[in-house]
Amino acid sequence: EAHAAIDTFTKYLDIDEDFATVLVEEGFSTLEELAYVPMKELLEIEGLDEPTVEALRERAKNALATIAQ
């Protein structure tokens, strides 16, 4: 499951495998979680700032909209 989540994140969020791995290690496994989890939870991840989190959430929401079509 972790590998599938990493693949999904790299494909749809335009991030590298290392960043995707950090997200999975922090407990995220779906685009929905990244799109809708409280921003505070993402900001608790070391190295993430508000602009990065906002961009990540926007990419996740856009990916979900694209997949739904």
Results as ranks from 00 to 15, higher is better:
residue 48 L to D: 01
residue 9 F to A: 02
residue 9 F to Q: 01
residue 61 K to G: 05
residue 36 Y to M: 12
residue 23 L to T: 00
residue 2 A to H: 14
residue 7 D to V: 08
residue 12 Y to Q: 04
residue 52 T to L: 12
residue 69 Q to R: 13
residue 53 V to K: 04
residue 60 A to N: 01
residue 57 R to T: 07
residue 50 E to Y: 12
residue 47 G to V: 06
residue 65 A to G: 09
residue 51 P to L: 12
residue 5 A to Y: 07
residue 21 T to V: 10
residue 12 Y to S: 04
residue 35 A to K: 02
residue 12 Y to F: 10
residue 22 V to A: 11
residue 29 S to E: 08
residue 68 A to W: 02
residue 14 D to W: 06
residue 45 I to S: 03
residue 56 L to K: 00
residue 56 L to M: 07
residue 14 D to P: 02
residue 8 T to D: 09
residue 20 A to I: 04
residue 57 R to Y: 02
residue 46 E to N: 12
residue 50 E to R: 15
residue 14 D to L: 08
residue 62 N to F: 04
residue 53 V to F: 08
residue 62 N to W: 04
residue 13 L to V: 02
residue 34 L to W: 02
residue 26 E to K: 15
residue 2 A to M: 15
residue 54 E to I: 15
residue 28 F to G: 00
residue 27 G to A: 02
residue 16 D to Q: 07
residue 6 I to E: 04
residue 8 T to S: 09
residue 50 E to V: 15
residue 60 A to H: 01
residue 35 A to Q: 05
residue 67 I to W: 00
residue 41 E to V: 13
residue 36 Y to R: 10
residue 33 E to Q: 11
residue 54 E to K: 13
residue 17 E to D: 09
residue 67 I to A: 07
residue 43 L to V: 07
residue 6 I to V: 10
residue 36 Y to T: 15
residue 26 E to M: 15
residue 18 D to P: 09
residue 15 I to K: 00
residue 63 A to K: 03
residue 38 P to D: 15
residue 8 T to Q: 10
residue 15 I to G: 01
residue 56 L to E: 00
residue 54 E to Q: 10
residue 56 L to Q: 00
residue 63 A to C: 03
residue 52 T to D: 07
residue 27 G to F: 03
residue 34 L to M: 06
residue 9 F to L: 11
residue 12 Y to E: 05
residue 44 E to M: 14
residue 47 G to L: 06
residue 43 L to R: 06
residue 13 L to W: 01
residue 37 V to D: 06
residue 24 V to A: 08
residue 9 F to I: 04
residue 59 R to L: 08
residue 6 I to K: 08
residue 16 D to T: 14
residue 12 Y to I: 05
residue 2 A to W: 13
residue 9 F to R: 01
residue 21 T to L: 13
residue 15 I to A: 02
residue 20 A to Y: 02
residue 46 E to R: 14
residue 2 A to F: 14
residue 14 D to V: 04
residue 12 Y to A: 05
residue 11 K to G: 04
residue 27 G to E: 01
residue 46 E to T: 14
residue 51 P to C: 09
residue 42 L to A: 06
residue 49 D to Q: 05
residue 5 A to W: 08
residue 6 I to F: 04
residue 7 D to R: 07
residue 63 A to M: 05
residue 64 L to D: 01
residue 16 D to F: 05
residue 55 A to V: 12
residue 67 I to C: 05
residue 38 P to A: 06
residue 64 L to T: 03
residue 47 G to S: 08
residue 23 L to M: 03
residue 55 A to D: 11
residue 4 A to W: 09
residue 54 E to L: 05
residue 52 T to I: 11
residue 7 D to W: 03
residue 29 S to I: 12
residue 65 A to T: 09
residue 29 S to Y: 15
residue 69 Q to W: 00
residue 40 K to N: 14
residue 10 T to N: 04
residue 1 E to C: 08
residue 49 D to T: 10
residue 3 H to S: 13
residue 48 L to K: 02
residue 53 V to Q: 03
residue 63 A to L: 04
residue 68 A to F: 03
residue 49 D to Y: 05
residue 31 L to E: 00
residue 43 L to S: 05
residue 68 A to R: 11
residue 13 L to Y: 00
residue 10 T to H: 07
residue 56 L to C: 02
residue 42 L to H: 04
residue 34 L to D: 01
residue 15 I to R: 00
residue 34 L to T: 00
residue 48 L to Q: 03
residue 63 A to E: 03
residue 13 L to M: 04
residue 63 A to S: 05
residue 14 D to Y: 08
residue 24 V to I: 12
residue 13 L to D: 01
residue 29 S to L: 15
residue 19 F to T: 10
residue 51 P to A: 15
residue 57 R to A: 06
residue 5 A to T: 10
residue 61 K to W: 02
residue 40 K to M: 11
residue 21 T to P: 00
residue 59 R to V: 05
residue 7 D to A: 08
residue 4 A to C: 09
residue 3 H to M: 14
residue 59 R to E: 04
residue 19 F to S: 04
residue 20 A to T: 01
residue 15 I to H: 00
residue 11 K to V: 05
residue 50 E to G: 13
residue 11 K to R: 10
residue 65 A to M: 08
residue 50 E to M: 14
residue 53 V to I: 11
residue 20 A to W: 02
residue 34 L to V: 10
residue 19 F to I: 09
residue 54 E to N: 10
residue 1 E to W: 02
residue 67 I to K: 06
residue 52 T to E: 07
residue 50 E to Q: 12
residue 11 K to H: 11
residue 61 K to Q: 09
residue 47 G to D: 06
residue 66 T to G: 10
residue 41 E to S: 09
residue 17 E to S: 12
residue 67 I to E: 06
residue 1 E to H: 13
residue 20 A to F: 02
residue 28 F to M: 04
residue 22 V to K: 15
residue 3 H to E: 11
residue 9 F to N: 01
residue 4 A to D: 11
residue 24 V to L: 10
residue 40 K to I: 13
residue 29 S to P: 03
residue 54 E to H: 07
residue 20 A to P: 00
residue 2 A to N: 13
residue 62 N to L: 09
residue 52 T to S: 10
residue 34 L to Y: 00
residue 28 F to A: 01
residue 45 I to G: 03
residue 54 E to W: 02
residue 52 T to Y: 09
residue 31 L to M: 05
residue 23 L to I: 04
residue 35 A to S: 07
residue 46 E to I: 13
residue 43 L to F: 06
residue 22 V to G: 04
residue 30 T to F: 05
residue 46 E to K: 14
